[in-house]
């Protein structure tokens, strides 16, 4: 198979050292002779591919890479297919328990496919919305039109993989934006993405919940410097006090803009207003029209509001 200009085997069932699955590559029959269970599984799967549908080459390649992965992983395997149900997925669902009877195949779909698929656990997402559990699947397969999201990446276990059955411009665009979060490896050219443990924290920081938490922390960080600023104001000479206040107000103004962005997500109707009044008391102090007691008072109001939010 062509792979980055080179030819390589996608599934090598001839070398027992490559097979770390629970399926034997060969075994001796009681009455003599040798049988090849692994070969049979792969043969069956291959037969399915070409019998059931003329899939795209990319899809077939992905399929074989997943089978190859199953051979290399002795652990229990949990697999999720997201998007349009295809016969290849059906085929994977059928062979998965043969590697380990407790292996599970899930399919997240908006519609129930016609026919019965006893080896598949369907999850129905109404309106395309379904909260994916974190750190749950060894493999996620994204069907052709499915755009990868941060939530999907988080649903994969450490060292688990996401497979793309095709790369189109929307997926490439999405991957491009993901590459800003963490470096995408050359694996991508092979239509797969491995979730390494250190990516997880980085990914989490970029999910909507993570972004909210980051922004909250940033605001709290700015607010937490206020007691120090007040103390400096009490002790420093006038010129230095002005510089300290200018810097502090500039930071408060920056944090206020962040607060305005996340305000609808917070459990307080007044925090944005109280934050602004905090800024106002500091500006008044800076312009010799305020008092430290007013700053202190407003700081207490604000911290109470933060606790509530």
């Amino acid at each position: 198979m062509e792979d980055g200009g080179q030819f390589s085997l996608l599934v090598d069932i001839r070398t027992p050292s490559e097979n770390r699955s629970r399926v034997h590559s060969h075994q001796f029959k009681e009455k003599g002779g040798v049988e090849f269970p692994l070969t049979e599984i792969v043969k069956e799967a291959t037969k399915n591919i070409f019998k059931k549908t003329p899939e795209s080459l990319a899809h077939v390649v992905t399929y074989f890479r997943i089978v190859a992965r199953l051979l290399k992983k002795p652990q229990i395997h949990s697999m999720l297919c997201i998007g349009n149900w295809s016969p290849l997925d059906e085929s994977l669902a059928e062979i998965l328990p043969q590697f380990n009877p407790v292996n599970k195949f899930y399919c997240l779909s908006e519609m129930r496919p016609l026919g019965k698929f006893p080896s598949v656990n369907f999850i129905f997402a109404e309106g395309g919305e379904f909260p994916l559990p974190e750190n749950k699947f060894d493999t996620i397969i994204l069907s052709e039109r499915q755009i990868p999201s941060l939530e999907m990446l988080l649903a994969v276990k450490d060292y688990g993989k996401i497979y793309f059955t095709a790369l189109n411009s929307s997926i490439e665009e999405s991957l491009q934006s993901l590459s800003k979060i963490f470096p995408l490896t050359a694996e991508l050219s092979l239509l797969e993405l491995e979730i390494l443990p250190h990516f997880r924290q980085e990914i989490k920081r970029h999910t909507p919940a993570g972004i909210l938490e980051n922004k909250k922390s940033e605001i709290i960080q700015v607010v937490s410097t206020l007691p120090d600023v007040i103390e400096k104001f009490r002790t420093l000479p006038r010129k230095k006090r002005t510089a300290v206040l200018d810097e502090c107000i500039s930071e408060i103004s920056r944090a206020e803009k962040i607060l305005a962005e996340i305000f609808p997500e917070l459990h307080s109707d007044t925090i944005k207003f109280n934050f602004n009044v905090m800024k106002e008391t500091l500006i008044d102090l800076r312009l010799d029209n305020g008092s430290l007691s007013r700053v202190d008072r407003q700081y207490k109001i604000l911290t109470q509001d933060f606790e509530q939010a």
């Binding site: 103004s253 206020e256 305000f263 609808p264 109707d269 007044t270 944005k272 207003f273 602004n276």
Partner: peptide
């Protein structure tokens, strides 16, 4: 009004 607009608008509102 500042309190009202602060709660309603997605921008900081000064007095």
């Amino acid at each position: 009004t500042q309190k009202y607009l602060s709660a309603k608008w997605s921008v900081p509102v000064d007095l």
